[in-house]
């Protein structure tokens, strides 16, 4: 296994001493098979213990190590050094405030996620003695891809509308709301529509499509958003043109 010199340019920000972020360059010997996260760990262990970043699983499951790598939202644990030439520029996820170095403030996303009620709201509560809420494979398939979301927020860092309109609920939260709306066991759509059919919900999306392009789990939030738009439009016409029909 070969080792080669790698240069990384990392955005640093120390809230106690820095007025604004600045880039710091590190040159370290890295193994051929390493990912960017390995390089960061190596720097922290051998060069600069003050470097701050989030990570946990190192296998694209936990969703903690999202960052901008050469301007593209990426999981650091899934980005191989060998795929980059020259200096690798590492920054915190775009559009989120910087807490320190590569650590961002994610309260906004957490708040929005909670608001869309991303959990099963059963159509009718049934006692445990009645057994499981059953579902066919076709019904499962309808929403399965959206369950793969790991809340890594790469889609937010890719979405210009989120950057321009901070109130916008954004891709992952709406895709997760859609995931439960599509679930045959769920009856919570009306509650979720209160949030996602509002102006700051799906209507701030202009279908740039970047969210789906950067998703490391191949979820398609952009698709979910368009489907929510179509369903909300059908709702609207039903409510306004056929008022005699009950919701």
């Amino acid at each position: 296994m070969g080792e080669r010199p790698v240069e990384l340019e990392i955005l640093r920000y120390n809230p106690e001493t820095d007025r604004e972020p600045r880039f710091q360059r590190y040159s370290v010997g890295c193994r051929e098979e390493w990912v960017v996260l390995d390089a960061l760990n190596h720097i922290k262990e051998t060069v600069d213990p003050t470097l701050s970043y989030r990570w946990s699983c190192h296998m694209a499951v936990c969703g903690s190590c999202g960052m901008m790598i050469n301007g593209e939202p990426k999981l650091a644990c899934k980005s191989f050094l060998r795929d980059y030439v020259g200096v690798i520029r590492v920054e915190p996820l775009a559009y989120f405030p910087i807490e320190r170095d590569l650590v961002t403030v994610i309260d906004d996303f957490m708040d929005k996620l909670a608001r869309v009620k991303p959990y099963l709201i059963p159509k009718r509560e049934q006692p445990v003695s009645d057994g499981e809420y059953r579902q066919t494979p076709a019904e499962l398939k309808k929403f399965k891809q959206y369950t793969l979301c790991i809340n890594c927020m790469l889609c937010y860092a890719a979405c210009p509308q989120y950057g321009l309109i901070p109130k916008y609920i954004g891709p992952a939260a709406i895709a997760l709301a859609h995931r439960y709306n599509q679930d045959s066991r769920d009856g919570g759509r009306d509650q979720r529509q209160e949030e996602i059919a509002a102006t700051e919900g799906v209507w701030d999306c202009s279908f740039v499509g970047a969210c789906s392009e950067v998703c490391p789990e191949h979820v398609d939030p952009a698709g979910a958003l368009q489907q929510v738009k179509i369903a909300s439009t059908v709702d609207w016409y039903r409510e306004h043109l056929m008022p005699w029909k009950k919701k």
């Binding site: 604004e20 910087i98 950057g163 321009l164």
Partner: peptide, 18 residues
Amino acid sequence: PYVREVSKSRWFLGQPRY
């Protein structure tokens, strides 16, 4: 927390996808 400014009229420059 440090908030990075997003240009309201030039955000799409330099990004092929945008």
